[in-house]
Simulated assay, not measured.
Amino acid sequence: MSEYKEIAWQGLWKNNPGIVQLLGLCPLLAVTSTLTNALGLGIATLLVLVGSNVCVSLIRRWVPKEIRIAVFVMIIAALVTCVQLLINAYAYGLYLSLGIFLPLIVTNCVIIGRAEAFASRQPVLKSAFDGLMMGLGFTIVLALLGAIREILGQGTLFAGADLLLGDWAAVLTIKLIDFDTQFLLALLPPGAFLTMGLIIAAKNAIDHHYAHKAPKTAPEPVSRARINQT
């Protein structure tokens, strides 16, 4: 159980792919203008990450080292195609909103990195759990960034939720701030960079606070015999 706790801790906080490893920054900064878009891409990435980790773990003993990266990319591309077709069929508005960033999940370094560094060396259950935790960590960062940018940019939350959940979800949109015009800095790429920097700074500040708060081990006392020898 301690191994699974460590995997969860690594994926959700200590080694979070979005704010620690800084992987997948292109979709992370480009798509997160709204919380709905962020959740859509995050869920799609999570599904591909879990599926690729499971597949790579299952075939890891039969894939020659010389072609393992090419095989991993083919597996990821097949899974991305399946997820893309599902979103196209059941959430077409979200499919149009995410655009090119859905097929670009194939090139996301988070997925190929976990396949190479973890799934190719671990059994299926651990690989699936690692994919789930890394995917959740990435999705949480996407959602947090999308929520902050949407609130600052247009004063709403869950705008366009019907794109992800269907027509009934239009009632989920919350109006928090009544803006005359949109705050474009928050919605454009410069705002994404600034907001991402603040999130990383907050995470580092929390780590620094708890590192100093943790009890320090006392130095080992020097024995009198050792003093006499010197």
Rank of each mutant, 00 (worst) to 15 (best):
M133F: 08
V110R: 05
V222H: 07
A147H: 01
H209L: 10
L176E: 07
L144P: 02
T139I: 05
D130Y: 13
T217N: 09
W168H: 08
R224C: 06
K203A: 06
S223A: 12
L165Q: 02
I227P: 05
F118D: 09
G155H: 00
N204Q: 14
V141W: 05
A119F: 02
A225P: 07
L164A: 11
A201Y: 04
V222T: 13
E220G: 00
L198F: 14
D162S: 12
K213E: 02
R224A: 14
C109H: 09
L144H: 02
A169Y: 12
G191A: 08
A159Y: 08
D130P: 03
I111F: 09
K203T: 03
G155A: 00
I151P: 00
F118Q: 13
L188Y: 14
L165W: 15
L198H: 04
G153T: 00
T173D: 10
A201E: 10
A225M: 13
R121N: 14
G146R: 08
A192Q: 01
T217C: 08
L125T: 07
L145R: 03
E116M: 08
A225G: 15
I140Y: 00
D130F: 12
P190F: 01
A159C: 03
I206Y: 13
P189N: 04
A218T: 07
I151T: 00
G191D: 01
A143D: 02
D167L: 08
C109V: 10
A147Y: 00
R149L: 00
S120I: 02
